[in-house]
Design a protein around this nucleic acid. Sequence first.
DNA 1: AGTTGTCAAGCTAGT
DNA 2: ACTAGCTTGACAACT
Length: 294
Amino acid sequence: MKIGYPCINLSIGCTTNSTFRLKNYSERNLIEKVNNNLDCLQKILEFNLKHNLLFFRMSSDIVPFASHPINKFNWQKYFKNRFEEIGNFIKKYDFRISMHPDQFVLLNSPDKKIVQNSIKELIYHCEVLDLMGLDKTAKVQIHVGGVYYDKKESIKRFVRNYQQLPAMVKSRLVIENDERLYSIIECLSIYQETGIPIVFDYFHHSCLNKGETYLEGINMALKTWQKKDGLMITDYSTQKKGARTGTHTEHIDLKDFENYIQSTLYLDFDIMLEIKDKEKSALKALKILKKWRR
DNA sequence: AGTTGTCAAGCTAGT
DNA sequence: ACTAGCTTGACAACT
């Protein structure tokens, strides 16, 4: 079991998300920013290694405008060696890596243009992982998408569009239960049509479920992961007090997390902590993990 | 030097 | 009709 946090480290003082405005697009700008982002990624991974946080979600912003039509630059070739170096570091120390494209990636949109843009964006994410030389346990995680007034039809559309994806995307893509639209049960119906593994999101499941407990939910998701996919990935967070339903907490709820760990000792999976204070909570979570596991 | 409106992209629910 | 929230800040023009 590995534990990690997404995209941003708050104590190092660098970011992998540096970018520029579209109107300022130039190859020079792009190269400068990607160099900066990759340097920072390396630093974050070194920090994580030192602290035994071996699961990391890489930012989608490493290559700004990667899938935008303005970008004709062969960044894949230009940064090949740098990606490979970082990939070697990841493999040497046995990190688990994932990525999470943002809310604009919608495979089940009725709008063909949106689907096309989404596929381009997915290809970009998978290219990064391929360039790093990571195996298919490095996953790209998305939500099912919108409902568009007809959930059944929208699920069908997801399945149809999934089947059209290039193999390099299919082999990495996983879906996650969300907090408002698609519960774990509905993800399972997509799994049955596609074989796509399901990320179990503990917090989202608490917001939206069909009566199954989180232990039932996590066991349902577990069955969708094959050996080639690596350990099941799960997301963990809790509700921010006083905020609207679905808002992630600022700091980890240690009591809830310890209960979660205690109740799942018989399972093996990786945990991504979607908590706003990032590595601070991840380090606390790791302590609890060590108390209960080995 | 610090503040603040805006930034490629979508959807939903709440105000 | 507008906007917070999503996984989330960073840029750049302005004071």
